[in-house]
Nucleic acid binder design. Sequence first.
RNA 1: GGUGACGUGGCCGAGUGGCUAGGCAAGGGUCUGCAAAACCCUGUACGGCGGUUCGAAUCCGCCCGUCACCUCCA
Length: 503
Amino acid sequence: MPVLAATFRIFNTRTRQVEPVDPVTPGKLRFYSCGPTVYSYAHIGNFRSFLSADLIYRTARAAGLDVSYVTNVTDVGHLTLDDLSDPAGEDRMVKALNSKEGEQFANIWDLARYYTKVLIEDWKSLNLLEPTVRPRATDHIREQISAVQQLLESGHAYETDKGIYFDVSKFAAYGELSGNTDAVELAPTERNIVTDDQKRDSRDFALWKKDSAHLMQWYSPWGWGFPGWHIECSVMSMSYLGEEIDIHAGGEDLIFPHHECEIAQSESLTGKTFARHWVHTRFLQVEGQKMSKRAGNFYTVRDLISPQEEGGRGIDPLAVRMTLMSGHYRKPFNFTFETLKANIRHRQRFEEAMAQVQLAQKQALAGPDELGKPLARLRERAFGAMLDDLNTPEALAAAIEGVKLILSVGKTINASSSASASDWLKTINRLLGIVSAEYEEIKRSEASDFGKKVELLIEERKQARSSRDFTRADAIRDSLSAMGIALMDTPEGVVWKRLSNLD
RNA sequence: GGUGACGUGGCCGAGUGGCUAGGCAAGGGUCUGCAAAACCCUGUACGGCGGUUCGAAUCCGCCCGUCACCUCCA
């Protein structure tokens, strides 16, 4: 399908301009994306940035690159301020464990396992492709310790009574990524509660925290403790992708300090460019406001997609995906229920287009291919938009035009047009992931017991209608509606769908 | 205080020197036991003020406004 020589261009935070992706090894892309700390259900903001990574993966693949895609799970609870010991000894994971929600877990490890499992479920629901490798920080403690040792030996780090710190004065380029280069400017905003007087510079950050009381601790040359937050990504990136990678991605908040610190550590270790391209996704807002629990506009993926009978809103996960794609990853994005509603409609169009294609295959009408050429143009437009710094709004516009084009042909679509439509839907799905679920287990769960119950009532209504008992037919429609089901009478039979609570 | 974004029609959102993106919502129509869906038709906007130009939403300057990061956050 794609042009082999297609150039993928994407914004590089380090140089502040859109640059072609230029792999270390031609034809191969080494790609690392920072994953979440698993202390709670992931929210739509988390997923906006994972989705950017997914789209980088899909676009690079479509451009003919052989992609190694690594995204981690951070299952170590790091301190809330990474260079000091919290007097309460609490981190996000410990806090989660001590909260009401946390009562269901036997211990901190159990909590991490649970939220990792849930993360991957949501991941699949939103049609995010599985990475090549999904490493966990706790599986790489040994490498982290070894990296810290090397940094100590090479003089890039020093030890105090409380931990090991990276010595920022030994890395001239510190601050280049974020623009936070001025130590004097950093100092005043720096932690007013710093408790380690032995730190040499306020910018220095922890590589290892000595702490024999922490819930998660490992033995090291410096006694019991746990690794600093930044070192895990350096180590996991290098373990799976090598010392120099092509793209490193994450949320905008990670630019500083996380990625700045990763660069300092990694490049001090290897003397090589850690990552050629840095890609960051901006935070989203909800209804024009910062998403926060206090503002009451905080949404996890679960809140939106789980069925209404399970307390969720029953929204089509792919509509959530489309909504998150409807803004450019590098611009502030306003997540609204109005946009979500619009995307629920778009998704229904994709469903209908697929039903139309299936019908056409049964009918096998003769006729010329009316869709091949215009759809090919729209496919190129969508692909071109993605290659151009992941222009998802433009790509989505082309995709929506395409479905509308397919639907406008109507039920009398002939076999050759429908073959073109079918190819196009598959290609668009591979590129954008918005047409249909790509995981078998998700497809299967759609055919549940609940579904059988609905089918039974529909059959009953069908009989009522054929005997022109419309009162009875409407009563069944109403009771289904109460179950959260909407019916659509079509010439080919009755189609049902789950209503979201936005309908 | 430092760093960096962004301001497009009722709303969301492309475009980035000349050629009405697209979507949602709205109004009208076709179809239909009802209800949807689908399809067709209608709708010319770029924060303000200067400047460059034959021509600016698009380039330059200033101003106003909004937001993010610098502190746990995707």
